[in-house]
């Protein structure tokens, strides 16, 4: 650095540079966390990761029903790890027309001898169909408290978008129930 004999001057230069670099460090630490919402936004926009499209009721009514096309929708119910529940779909599959609203349900029962809280996470395959699979009602993501031995039906209202790409004939909607009894207590 030319002609910087003055140590005072140099200290000021260092301080300014350190402040800037420190900001970069703090910013990048924040960026790591910002990747979490960014990732969700990215997945929502692209429908990657099996995240389903969201839709308000009036949008559903505005859709024209495509009677000429039939798509098979399969329902899968999974239990995570050693969760002693019963969990199954009312219908294993439905043949649907794009644009029409359908209702089905899943049945879950807590077979364990104590109260539990579960949470179901949906996933749609194939990925290209995920954006075009819309649910207006779903029991997913919310905490579902079940007393010991309690069982109930949980409805799902869904529609397959008319813009579903050609060539997709089967869509699978899978729910996985997770035991969140302990973590729910933590929050």
């Amino acid at each position: 650095m030319p002609e910087l004999v003055n140590s005072h001057e140099r200290k000021r230069l260092h301080a300014r540079l350190i402040a800037k670099l420190g900001l970069v460090v703090v910013g990048m630490f924040g960026f790591g966390f910002a990747m979490v919402p960014l990732y969700d936004v990215f997945c929502d926009l692209t429908g990657l990761n099996g995240k389903t499209g969201r839709m308000a009721v009036q949008d559903v009514e505005a859709q024209e029903i495509d009677e000429n096309r039939t798509v098979t929708v399969q329902f899968v119910a999974n239990l995570n790890q050693s969760m002693h529940w019963e969990f199954q779909p009312a219908d294993t599959e439905l043949r649907v027309h794009p644009g029409r609203l359908y209702t089905t349900s899943f049945y879950a029962r807590n077979k364990a001898g104590h109260d539990m809280i579960g949470r179901a996470i949906p996933s749609v395959a194939p990925g290209q169909a995920a954006l075009h699979f819309k649910k207006t009602e779903c029991f997913c993501f919310r905490r579902q408290a079940f007393e010991a031995g309690e069982g109930r039906d949980m409805p799902v209202r869904f529609m397959v978008d008319t813009k579903l790409p050609e060539g997709i004939e089967t869509i699978t909607l899978a729910y996985t129930f997770f035991d969140v009894t302990e973590t729910a207590a933590l929050q």
Binding site: M28, F31, G32
Partner: peptide, 22 residues
């Protein structure tokens, strides 16, 4: 280093809170 070490610190912090803080 100053661009990515903080990201790693963030990632392992998230692991920590996932394990212990719900």
């Amino acid at each position: 280093l100053i661009a990515v070490m903080p990201v790693l610190a963030g990632a392992v912090t998230m692991l920590l809170t996932d394990k212990y803080f719900g």
